[in-house]
Nucleic acid binder design. Sequence first.
DNA 1: TTTGCTTCATGAACCGCTTCATAGCGACGA
DNA 2: TCGTCGCTATGAAGCGGTTCATGAAGCAAA
Lengths: 362, 362
Amino acid sequence: MAMTIKDVAKRAGVAVGTVSRVINGRPDVNPKLREKVERVIREMNFRPNARAQSLGRNASPIISFILSNRSVLHPFHARVLQGVEEYCAQAGYFVVFARFDYSRDTAVGALRLPGVLQSHGIADCVIAAGTNYGNFLEALDRLGMKYVSLGNNLITAEEQPPVNQVRFDDYGGTVEATRYLIQLGHKDIYFVGDTSLPWCQHRYEAFSKTMREAGLEPHGFTTGLADDHFMNGLNSVSFLLEHNHAMTALFAGNDDVAYGAWEALNRHGLKVPGDVSLIGFDDQYGPRRYPQLTSVRVRTDEVGRELGKMAIEKIRTGAVDIPEVVVPTKLERRGTCRPLPNDVARRKPALQDEIATTSGGT
Amino acid sequence: MAMTIKDVAKRAGVAVGTVSRVINGRPDVNPKLREKVERVIREMNFRPNARAQSLGRNASPIISFILSNRSVLHPFHARVLQGVEEYCAQAGYFVVFARFDYSRDTAVGALRLPGVLQSHGIADCVIAAGTNYGNFLEALDRLGMKYVSLGNNLITAEEQPPVNQVRFDDYGGTVEATRYLIQLGHKDIYFVGDTSLPWCQHRYEAFSKTMREAGLEPHGFTTGLADDHFMNGLNSVSFLLEHNHAMTALFAGNDDVAYGAWEALNRHGLKVPGDVSLIGFDDQYGPRRYPQLTSVRVRTDEVGRELGKMAIEKIRTGAVDIPEVVVPTKLERRGTCRPLPNDVARRKPALQDEIATTSGGT
DNA sequence: TTTGCTTCATGAACCGCTTCATAGCGACGA
DNA sequence: TCGTCGCTATGAAGCGGTTCATGAAGCAAA
């Protein structure tokens, strides 16, 4: 019932093969004939059937974006997805979105993969975002499925071969932010966030290293609840304050942890940046959320575009030795840090007093 | 090179048709034979080629989620998308995500549709989310493409046929929130938000109607900049305060407008809810963002699931007369509203004084 | 004129699965 | 015993493209 390439061929008085070659822009078609066929295609408003093309070419125009181990599509990954889609659309590829929850401990054979991967031939490459582990990637290998991964939350064993990946510069961003605090004169800087999470741990490591290089003692602290960063920040900082930890600056694992920390400071009567300087990570909310937060900006959309680009390269060339892409980060200063006055030492007891009078529950 | 249904047939000693019928769970296969074929499939770890299935069946397992006229995938639509994916995955469908920007004034034939729609046969149904206009839907009609739409931001002319849609109960939620404020004793209630946006206008209309029914005068106000709701709220409320408008409650078009309004109130030294009660819409941030906001909760994921369900129904049955689905909303009370004390009248001059002393720039 | 070479259109084979007309087979009733 | 019928397996004909071996046509050189 629908129009096919045969109808076009008949109408144009040529063979189907010729129409096909015209559609695909092959060089070996006489220019005059090409023009004629193109006119007929336009006249008939013919659009080739993508399913048939896909089968004939034995290639799919689809790339699968898999968000692993994330119960919700947070703004961070939403923007990555958007970047992926932007690049892919421009290159003639389409992006199917799927979530996938799994445990790192599940045997490779026992993983119940998402439908896009169970059926064979839907997508030609997977972009693994969210948090991923070696077992999933090995499952993809076994399926013969190509993949690239968002590197920041990728945990693989040492002995596994390197994974083609795009990541943003966690390390550099953390170093920049930490140095900034040190430069402002801060010495008692606490890192807050659930360091059992790989990305958070990376950040803490970079923080520690930078602190040590400056001859300072790094502190890291977290109180449970990895899945709710705001509460993690709130509880962690409350706990610290209630135990008379003196701090002049906080570096939070991400922006939600930072806002939670801020709330804890508020509740204890401490001002940002008057009493405590505060830095977040991701710059998830940008300059539009009030109160604004000094944070390490990640070009999330750029990460997405690079992932799309790498996936397509992988599909087209089958390359296995694609070098890792690292998207730079940048500290955005938005007024939650201030230089430390010289009378810090005097503040400590005052701080303790305040804590004593305002301590709340755990 | 890859394994095909023929290999399975040979190995199991049956015809390809039989294998196909086993795979598709057709009834007319002898149970013993079925089991045998199934065993062979398992042994060979055979997975049918989805591209070939799709061509053979002349049907695609793909649904296209199109986010129209939204430069970013905001949390609201991210959750809708997630709901769509959840339902579709469970029903054996996949979701391709694409953005699409267009003007409502572009002629139907001149719309440059996204790639997923330009090539024919990728997806069997479109879910139109974001803000959509009649011209796009007509373009879809002309392509013979099935579609369902998120109804809340859908603007079509009266004469166009009804569109199969899912929407959340804007109207009911607004009425509930407005009545709540009225019941608390508020009379000077302002609606803030860019009412040139259709959804915002709907909310304002429902607000107005409810106010009038209670014998109260509805006020609505906005100051430019539809694309940044926070700033819209901030500027609008600043402007109102600087012009000595007395208000005891604010109803914001959405949560970002509400937080912007809150910031304006802060800057003018007014407390929420002490001086002004505040209600948002969407409950986009839920209970986790501080300060918490009383807001009308929209079950975004449910909206997504219903969209997925309707799309699949449309694909399977080809139905055209699917009744509209309305997802209920609910007012979440989070402490930004308080009953109005009886001395309101006395507050007005005080309010004006405060404004006089704290007025900032435009 | 013949030969050799390039250019370019042809159409059949094929991609891997679904579907359907056909037929084999056994049981049952007449 | 034969005819009928229901159950079930067969395999060829699609689905709508891509691709490639083939050969026709045109042209330059011998």
